[in-house]
Design a protein around this nucleic acid. Sequence first.
DNA 1: TGTTAGCACTCAACTCCATCGAGTGCTAAC
DNA 2: GTTAGCACTCGATGGAGTTGAGTGCTAACA
Lengths: 343, 343
Amino acid sequence: MELDERKRTILNAIVRNYLETGEPVGSRTISKYTDLNLSSATIRNEMADLEEMGLILQPHTSAGRIPSDQGYRVYVDEMLRDKEKEVENMKEMLLDKEEKLETLLKQVAKTLATDTNYATMISAPQIRKNKLKFIQISKVDDEHLLATIVIEGNVIKNKIITVEEVLDDATMLKLNILLNTRLDGLAVEDINLGLIAAVKQEAGIHSEIIGGVIDAAAESITADEDLQIYTSGTMNFFKYPELTDSAKASELISTFEDTKDLSSIVEDTLSSDGEDTGIQVYIGSESPVQAMKDCSVVTATYELGDGMKGTVGIIGPKRMDYDKVISTLKNMRHALDDLYKKN
Amino acid sequence: MELDERKRTILNAIVRNYLETGEPVGSRTISKYTDLNLSSATIRNEMADLEEMGLILQPHTSAGRIPSDQGYRVYVDEMLRDKEKEVENMKEMLLDKEEKLETLLKQVAKTLATDTNYATMISAPQIRKNKLKFIQISKVDDEHLLATIVIEGNVIKNKIITVEEVLDDATMLKLNILLNTRLDGLAVEDINLGLIAAVKQEAGIHSEIIGGVIDAAAESITADEDLQIYTSGTMNFFKYPELTDSAKASELISTFEDTKDLSSIVEDTLSSDGEDTGIQVYIGSESPVQAMKDCSVVTATYELGDGMKGTVGIIGPKRMDYDKVISTLKNMRHALDDLYKKN
DNA sequence: TGTTAGCACTCAACTCCATCGAGTGCTAAC
DNA sequence: GTTAGCACTCGATGGAGTTGAGTGCTAACA
């Protein structure tokens, strides 16, 4: 069967009406809602077709219809293609004058949650170019050295190293020179056992210290596996009855607590980011996370220049206001873009 | 009226029974539950007294009794005094080999949540001795300097400073010496405008850079106002029906999301920490947070040496298993203690 | 004087049942 | 192809009756 213009109109009307009310919508409603001027009986016939095509479904006999996952999909795809929405002026986001990345991200998550009334998540940007830019050890006091490691993108890591012996300034200088000449510009795959052995040997009696520093350095440029994710607006789930029976809510909330599941969304978004919009919509069971099978997830990738890419996502009921969510996310992307340009 | 031995026994029986079942408990139950060998009629008389004293209450006529906040209080106080519980051997906590403080704290929160089936929170230790220990600037590349600031307790802060001019090694050395001689060992209150002006003057043409570094330093030793709090086990609320009607759950969860409310608990705990046990119990409306008026909160302070104090808390229904929670928290304190000694 | 048995009373929770109404599918007529 | 009409389905709602746990009170008992 074909999805002709009239069927499409009716499907859209069903989806839109259901988004608003959250109740199954009946034929009579559609008959009045659209300007097709068709009687409810005709609508019923069309609806039977749409149901056969798997685009809408009945929760039970004698109830109205609600969109199926596939029905939402048709709706969303059409919306995304149809109107390359002009970016509305969102109320000025409080993104200025935040210096710490962490604070900024939390801010973003919160703003989005407040604006949309859905739950939100944002992942810290993943650093792609993991090259060492600068290494230095300094003497904090007689027993402690401080290793400072800067990697590309000006991300800084520190490590305190406890030493037995007191090192004099000349030795410190020597070790610093050694570290920088041998390690600068290296990526993680360049640091192998052979190199470590060679540098250690060169360090002579201080090989142990050097070993510690190299370990710290290696850790710094690899250890970002566990990507940071910040969430906000979890309590918004409670605004949508269809998500709030005890079992579902509990599962959802615990998903939001344990970031493992969320990272799978982040990864999925970052990898399957073929389209130019950078917006991804997961409806119901399309989501990589099982617990969100009754939700929809809309994600966007953002970029803070330098290949530092992160993901921001909005999670709500399947009947979320896709239109608003998508344009809000687009705004956020631009805001983050601008922010980077300023700095 | 006096709370004699028999009343006390009956109160305890009521509380304990209610903790187990979560249902109002009736006179007949108590009559069998205790070894007082009293008929239900007698118990009823005593219960009427207890109700008059405000220690128990009836959800509605013809229901059993449940403990009031005040009743819980009597019960908990007695328990805390009675048995200075031997610390049971808890299953080995996974506190070893965690190097990062943040990871450790998250771990602790999670372990506690899993062990107790309640929601948990832990605050990062607040640094009390805010003295500068070591300052250093280094050249990352021609346009960027890295300021590294170590404060007591070996907490490290970094800041990247962008410079217009390229600085040569001699200048760097000079500035470093200047910074360390003038600022080492200073507390936040010592850094005033006068000092800043003096140091800037000494720096001559590089006063701007020095200004930036001093700003960063001052920020480092003060800016920890917004204390970090990690939570876990929020979904455990759903295990207790009395907390799970939509309105309450939503309020609770949002309290857990916004750390502001939680910090008020942390502050309260840290300040009113008179007793040697370091354990604090807030029952219902005793809690400084309004949203938790249907919960109980048990907190403990922990110390990672060096006056770095933090708070760990467990939040559950009023009928939580105080006994278990308290001994679990005690264990956790000791575990954290040991951990510090090892490092 | 404290304890107990007995009894009337209360009230939430549950079941049963009738009603209502929104919505459907089908058929026949336009 | 569209529409009016009708029988049918089924969740939701609400009232009536029942049950059972629990109480308060009183009178009798040790």
